[in-house]
Structure formats: structure tokens, C-alpha cells
Nucleic acid binder design. Structure first.
Length: 799
RNA sequence: GCGGGCAUGGCGGAACUGGCAGACGCGACGGAUUUAGGAUCCGUUGGGCAACCGUGCAGGUUCAAGUCCUGUUGCCCGCACCA
């Protein structure tokens, strides 16, 4: 039976809202469940079916938990600062505030149309002054704690967007916003010292329930390595060059050094370098390459030897040449390496190309062919000779370096400090004042929020300076410390700031005195279950874990880790199997689906289309299948009769169990399939009881809440079905009295027999042998072995 | 190169801890209804006339392998000259 989904859905959405039934309760005696989904960036394009899938997972789980009696917090908000809005504002000459409000309204209406059970009373908007006050407050706390610093370094810079990008935002050498090539530029930028939390972020992973690949990606991204620092004395000047290595054990095999083209030692000793012109030419060539090109050239090593300065190998006192080459990066370690061509593939390649000595110090390989990176006995290594384990050799070499005062154990991370500013308007102003006398001074806490001033022109200034720099009334201020004339910082925070703590605000969203009250945080935190996209694993997830851990360290939050459990949904691909994109024209608009089939169908389909965690292509015909299913459900009340049907009883217990368990494991596709199967069984039987109908619509309610509420009302149900208790099952009743078991001979299926469910092994085997199909196959053979797997299979091995 | 994962009908995908491979849905085919189309309902649907054969490929363990082991091929994702 077709049902009037448009009318039904609107009706129930209005009633839910009126009754406020999805508001998290203030009753803290109840067991809590905090389900978090990644709040959307309210783009002008509106919502995407991907958003629907991303939210539908925890939507179903939240609805089930509510029916199970939990106090559920399932909030939503908007991560609304950012470049796309600002770019659109510039293009249309509209204030970003207006653009943002419009987009938020659009997203809100779309989300409500799908019937998500969000607690709309707790919505946050990161661009709201009452919200970003606390974003700035956290920044100030970090500033006080020495985690904020300013440095002039080579940074990732997007020439198109005219902004500095963090490492996380320029993955693969492309700007995360516009996908143009990122270039390296020397700039004075703000940093958050996330590297100070590298170990804590690594250790925290042991305490949380994240998928293995998510943990691996974060571990990889943090990239901790243990090794040693060592100073190599230079000839021709009174200085040492510090290197980092993970293989101090191979130091006797060092036959040259390599430094990054940008290494400052070159500038410092220009006049002592006899081939400075050649070096400059090479350095200029490197500077022109994008980061991407530089890392692409993994095969062919280039470089230039520095003439006039050499180094001394501290292990054996031998003089060794120094090269500059772009295979050494200024951004990792010290920008200088000791090269051991016999035992490092890159050094080997470089030595071969430049004809440098290759000295074997570990036995086990054939260094005439390739570098040997394995373990073995130490040779040609003075006091290390004869040692057979890497660990021991490393320890001895580090002891040697420490004793001589020229090195020590060291740890390095691939993760870099977080470049934390954008030269744009639509972001949180950085609450810092530059005073000629006092230096950098934090804006006093009582003056927060430091509000964005009104401007007329949002375009970045010459050379990428912030639009705020053009507003004298904003820039000129007095120093909070000495009262003298000072200038405000005009950069704003990056997009990721607001999302680094939003889950805390949800617990107490309107609190004017704190980011959230202690009571609210104690009760709700940590987030019990956080679902989102894989694309955020090495950005938002790392950043927010860092902020949260910092807040824990200053006593502002009660738990070390913000998210107890994390899962990720798979992408919805276009009908053609490609990733959905505007340019390919394969984007499916959720509105269109709701218009034609209704929200319940959309909800069921995005969860039924495949494994929740995997990518799956959109298929319009399959959507129709879900529509058919719900239309058939709409007819179920017509089949209600007073008579009990024992055949359906087992089917119901089985299904209650299956659906209950599958939802908790995010196996939504099989949960829905089980309901479809049950519906088919009911149709075969021709009738069901009213109690069975109630159970059915309860199980389906989290997936298709509108239709099931309507049925509930029509059959005289009181109150909201969404708040009715979740059905229970009786384990003993999940198995039929008579079961079908398979009979195999020699492991091959030969037939099936129908037996009582509690049949003994002997009886089962006897029944199998007596089966008219099986008996002739065993005639004249001797039985070698008989196996009975209870309730499943009889296998007779005969010769 | 490192790390994570995947491979099952025409398609999306099921399959507990090794126990009847292909649940459920789509599509297709046949039928009913209909002036027709659509929608709906009923039936069939891995291949093969059959014995049998079938989960990327080649082996192995086992009474029994999609599932475990060894090797191999292809694909996807993340990181990547990280010293």
C-alpha cells in the first residue's frame, strides 16, 4: 500500500519538535549515551547524500538507545568559519555572516526533513561570538602554557587561496581547499606546539576503541622514531654540524654528509666555500620546485659537493666531504644527515652517483650490489666490532657520543608543529596584541570574545595580508600590559580551530561562564561513540585530541581522551561507481530522493545499500526496492488477526535478536534484510497478531521513524513509538522445534533431513543413514568416521 | 618503499568461532491484472541436460575451507627521499 509520505513525515517531524522528545535530559541519574557525528560545514551547495549516510548510522543507534532507556545526547551544529564561504562572500559582495546564516538555515531544514533525532536545542555555530569566545579562550590558555609561538620558517603556501597551510592541510602537495599546487615560502607564522603532545597522542591511542587502520594512520602521521643526535666537527671553521640518525650503530661507515639546500650553515660560511656559485645555482633550482616535484624525484639523486668545508667522522676521525642535496629536508631532524652508503638505500644511490667510498660495517649483505639494511655482526667499526645486535651497537655508540659530549639519544616525529593562522577574514581573530615594549601579549580573558570587526572588503591584501590589517580601528589598540600604543594581530585562526572542541560545548551549549560546566562535562564526557569520515583521521581527529588533552592537563575536562569509540562510514559513490563530484555530474541530491520517495526510504536505503563502513555506488532501482519494502510495511495492519501463529513466533524472536545485535555492530544492511525476511515470512503466513505488529514497527522505527509512528497511532498506540520500550527476545525461542540439518558424505552435501532441535548425535546420524536419499549411497561401504555438528550438519566418511 | 584493507552470481552485497556458499535487495525471465504503459501480485533466477563444477590464481592442512596456512596476481586507501 502506498502511503502519503509527504504528509506523514511532516506531521511527525512537527510533533517531535513540539514535544521536544529528542532533547537530552538533565536527569543525570539515568545512564548516558553521547553519540557524536561530525558537524557539517554549511556550504552553499546544501547537503549531500554522503551527509545523510554519515549521520544515519548513529541516528539509528541513538534512537535504539533511547528506546532502551538511555539518556541520549545526539547533537548537531555547524562548523561555519572557512574559505568557501568567504570566497563566495567576496564574489557576491555579501557579508559572510549573511551567507553563513543562509546556509545554516538551508542545512537545518534539510536535516529536519530527513527526521534526524538531533537535540536541536543544543545546536552550536562556531562563528557565533558566544562560541568563539571559548575557542579564543582555549587559544589564550595555550598561549599562557607556552604552546603558541611564532616563527619564520618555510611554510606551505597556497598561491591561489593566498594562505599558509598546515602540513595536514597540504597533504600530497595540494591545497586542501582549492587543490592547486602548494609552494614553499618563508613566512612569519603562528604555530601551536602540537609536537609537545606527540607522545601523549600516541599513548592515548592505547586507551580508545578506534578501528585498527585509524590507529595505524595516526601512529604513522605522528611518526615517532628513536635515534640519536651527533655533532660532526667541521674543518675550516670552528663549528660542528648536528645530525639526527636512527642508526648510530653504523657511524663507522659514514663516508660523507648531506645537508638540506636551505641549511643555514651555507649562508654562515659563504666566504669559506670556494664553489658558492655552484651551490647557489643548485639551491635556486630546488627552491623553484614544488614540494610535490621534490618528493616525486625519488629515483634520481642530485646534489653538489661543498668545496672548502669538510667534516670529521667522530667515530674514526676521518675527514669526509659534505654535499647539499634535496633528498635531505630542512623540516625533519636537523636538516643534516650522516650518510652511510653501505647500509642506507638513499645514501647508497647517492654514493654510487658521486663516486663516494662505501664502507661495510655490518656483515650479511652484498654491498657491491645494494645497501644492506638488515642485522649482522659489526665489522670495520673499532670498539663496536664483533657486536651482533643492532640494539647493543646503538647503545654503545650513544654512550660513546654522550661521554665525549658530542651527542645523545634523541626522538623525532614526522608530525610538525601546527601552522595556526590564516590571512583571511572569516575566522576567529587571534587574541594577541603586539606591543613594541612588551612583545606579544595575550588579550585579557575578560575582553573575550575579541569580535570580528565589520569590514567592507573581505579580499586579502597585497602579499596575502589579512583583510583585518586594513582596519585601523581594529589594529590600533593599547597594550594590555603597559597601556602603551600597540597593534593587534590581524590573522585569524584556521578552519580546524572551532571543530577542535565543539563536542565539549554540546554538553552545556549556552553556558556564558565556561566552555561547559564541570557537572555537564563530568556527566557526558567522554563521547561514547564518534562516527565520521576517514578524511578527518589525520587532521580533525589529531587536532581535537590534542586540544582535549591540553584541556585535561589544565584541569578543564575530566578525561584524557575525548572519544571512547570511533567508527567511519564509507563513501556513497555516484551511480557510475566514481566518487561523486559536481564536475562529473554524478551527484545525488537527498532532496530529490525525499521528494519522490520520502525521508524514510532515503534513510533505509543509505543503510541498506551495503556494509556501512565501505564505499558503495548509488543505485536508483535499489532505492525503489526500499520503497516497495516500506509500502508493504504500510499494509501490515490489514493483516492483523487475533489468531496466534506458532510458526511466526520463532521468526520474531530471531529477528528481534538479529536486529538488536546488528544495530549495535553497525551492520545495518543485514538488520534491514532481517526485517525484510520477516515481512516475507508474515506475508507467507497471511496474518500476524497485533503484538507482533507492534514489535515489528518498533524494530523498524530507528530506520523509518515516520511511517512507524503513523502505524503506531493508527492502531491505537499511546505516546510516541520513538519512546516506547525496545522489544526483547527469548533465546530459547529463537530456534524452531524442528530443524533442517545438512547431510554430507565425505564432506560433500548429499541431502538434508528434518529432525527435532534437541536430537542427540546418535539419533541424528541414524536419521541421516535412514534417509531414503542417503541410504543407497552408503550401501556396501564401510563407515570410517561420523561427525555431528549440533544443529548444523552430519558428515559420514565412508569407503 | 612503509602502513591498512579488499577480491564471492548480471549488479549492491550476505555467510556465527572452519560446518548446507549466494541471505536480503536490484536486475532479468515467465505468468496474473491492465485498452496500453506504469504500478502491483505470483513464480523462476550461480553454471551445467546430467553426474557434477563453482568464492582472483597455485598449492597445503582438515571429515569439512569464502573462512586457516604457504606462495602468487590484481585492485583500493593513507603516508612517503622521515635520515
Amino acid at each position: 500500500m502506498k502511503y502519503d509520505f509527504a504528509a506523514i513525515e511532516k506531521k511527525w517531524q512537527d510533533r517531535w519538535e513540539e514535544a521536544g522528545i529528542f532533547r537530552a535530559s538533565e536527569d543525570r541519574s539515568k545512564k548516558k549515551f553521547y553519540a557524536l557525528v561530525e558537524f557539517p560545514y554549511p556550504s552553499g551547495a546544501g547537503m549531500h547524500v554522503g551527509h545523510i549516510k554519515a549521520y544515519s548510522g548513529l541516528e539509528v543507534i541513538s534512537r535504539k538507545r533511547r528506546m532502551q532507556g538511555y539518556n541520549v545526547l545526539f547533537p548537531i551544529g555547524f562548523d561555519a568559519f572557512g574559505l568557501p564561504t568567504e570566497n563566495y562572500a567576496v564574489k557576491t559582495n555579501t557579508h559572510p555572516r549573511i551567507v553563513t546564516d543562509k546556509n545554516i538555515r538551508k542545512f537545518t531544514s534539510q536535516l529536519k526533513r530527513v527526521g534526524f533525532s538531533f537535540d536541536w536545542s543544543r545546536t552550536v555555530d562556531t562563528t557565533d561570538e558566544d562560541y568563539y569566545k571559548w575557542t579564543q579562550w582555549i587559544f589564550r590558555k595555550m598561549f599562557d602554557a607556552g604552546l603558541v609561538f611564532r616563527a619564520t620558517t618555510l611554510v606551505n603556501y597556497c598561491p591561489h587561496c593566498q594562505v599558509v597551510l598546515s602540513n595536514e592541510d597540504s597533504q600530497g602537495g595540494k591545497c586542501d581547499i582549492c587543490h592547486s599546487e602548494v609552494i614553499q615560502k618563508s613566512k612569519d607564522v603562528w604555530y601551536l606546539r602540537i609536537t609537545a603532545y606527540a607522545d601523549k597522542l600516541l599513548e592515548g591511542l592505547a586507551k580508545v576503541d578506534y578501528p585498527a587502520n585509524v590507529k595505524a594512520m595516526q601512529e604513522n602521521w605522528i611518526g615517532r622514531s628513536e635515534g640519536a643526535f651527533a655533532d660532526f666537527r667541521l674543518t675550516g671553521c670552528d663549528e660542528s654540524l648536528r645530525i639526527y640518525t636512527t642508526r648510530p650503530d653504523t657511524m663507522f661507515g659514514v663516508t660523507f654528509m648531506v645537508i638540506a639546500p636551505e641549511h643555514p650553515v651555507i649562508e654562515k660560511y659563504r666566504d669559506r666555500i670556494s664553489n658558492i656559485d655552484a651551490l647557489d645555482a643548485y639551491r635556486e633550482e630546488c627552491a623553484k620546485k614544488t614540494e610535490f616535484e621534490r618528493t616525486q624525484l625519488t629515483k634520481d639523486k642530485t646534489g653538489v659537493r661543498i668545496e672548502g668545508i669538510a667534516a670529521i667522522n667522530p667515530a674514526n676521525g676521518k675527514e669526509i666531504p659534505i654535499y647539499i642535496s634535496d633528498y635531505v629536508m630542512m623540516g625533519y631532524g636537523t636538516g643534516a644527515i650522516m650518510a652511510v652508503p653501505a647500509h642506507d638505500e638513499r645514501d647508497y644511490e647517492f654514493a654510487k652517483k658521486f663516486g663516494i667510498d662505501i664502507v661495510e660495517v655490518i656483515k650479511g649483505g652484498d654491498i657491491s650490489k645494494e645497501a644492506y639494511t638488515g642485522d649482522g655482526e659489526m665489522i670495520n667499526s673499532g670498539f663496536l666490532n664483533g657486536i651482533e645486535t643492532k640494539k647493543e651497537a646503538i647503545a654503545k655508540m650513544i654512550a660513546f657520543l654522550s661521554e665525549k659530549g658530542i651527542g645523545e639519544k634523541g626522538v623525532q616525529y614526522k608530525m610538525k608543529d601546527w601552522a595556526f593562522n590564516r590571512q583571511r577574514y572569516w575566522g576567529e581573530p587571534i587574541p594577541i596584541v603586539h606591543c613594541p615594549k612588551c612583545g606579544m601579549v595575550g588579550v585579557p580573558y575578560e575582553e573575550l570574545p575579541l569580535k570580528l570587526p565589520p569590514v567592507e572588503n573581505f579580499e586579502p591584501g597585497e602579499g596575502g595580508e589579512s583583510p583585518l590589517a586594513k582596519i585601523d580601528s581594529f589594529v590600533n589598540c593599547s597594550c594590555p600590559k603597559c597601556g602603551g600604543p600597540a597593534k593587534r594581530e590581524t590573522d585569524t585562526m584556521p578552519q580546524w580551530a572551532g571543530s577542535s572542541w565543539y563536542f565539549l560545548r554540546y554538553t552545556d551549549p549556552h553556558n556564558p561562564d565556561a566552555l561547559a560546566s564541570k557537572e555537564a562535562l563530568d556527566y557526558w564526557m567522554p563521547v561514547d561513540w564518534y562516527n565520521g569520515g576517514m578524511e578527518h583521521v589525520t587532521r580533525h581527529m589529531i587536532y581535537s585530541r590534542f586540544w582535549h588533552r591540553f584541556l585535561y592537563d589544565i584541569g578543564a575536562v575530566p578525561c584524557e581522551e575525548p572519544y571512547a569509540k570511533r567508527t567511519a562510514q564509507g563513501l556513497i559513490l555516484g551511480p557510475d561507481g566514481d566518487k561523486m563530484s559536481k564536475s562529473k555530474g554524478n551527484v545525488v541530491d537527498p532532496n530529490d530522493v525525499v521528494d519522490v520517495y520520502g525521508a524514510d526510504v532515503l534513510r533505509v536505503y543509505v543503510l541498506f545499500m551495503g556494509d556501512y563502513g565501505s564505499a558503495a555506488p548509488w543505485n536508483d532501482s535499489s532505492v525503489k526496492g526500499c520503497k516497495r519494502f516500506l509500502d508493504r510495511v504500510a499494509s501490515l495492519p490489514e493483516m492483523v488477526s487475533g489468531k496466534e501463529n506458532p510458526k511466526l513466533e520463532t521468526a520474531f524472536h530471531k529477528t528481534v535478536k538479529k536486529v538488536s545485535e546488528d544495530i549495535d555492530e553497525m551492520k545495518f544492511n543485514t538488520a534491514i534484510a532481517a526485517l525484510m525476511t520477516l515481512l516475507n515470512d508474515i506475508a507467507d503466513q497471511g496474518s500476524l497478531t497485533k503484538d507482533q505488529l507492534v514489535d515489528f514497527i518498533k524494530l523498524l522505527n530507528p530506520f523509518a521513524p515516520h511511517l512507524t509512528e503513523e502505524i503506531w497511532e493508527n492502531i491505537g498506540g499511546r505516546g510516541f513509538l520513538s519512546l516506547a520500550p525496545w522489544p526483547e527476545w527469548d533465546e530459547a525461542k529463537t530456534v524452531d522445534d524442528e530443524i533442517e540439518i545438512a547431510v554430507q558424505i565425505g564432506g560433500k552435501l548429499k541431502g538434508t533431513i528434518l529432525v527435532p532441535k534437541d536430537i542427540s548425535k546418535d539419533d541424528a546420524i541414524a536419521a541421516a543413514k535412514a534417509d531414503p536419499k542417503i541410504a543407497p549411497l552408503l550401501a556396501g561401504k564401510s563407515i570410517v568416521k561420523e561427525i555431528y555438528v549440533p544443529g548444523r550438519i552430519v558428515n559420514i566418511v565412508a569407503k
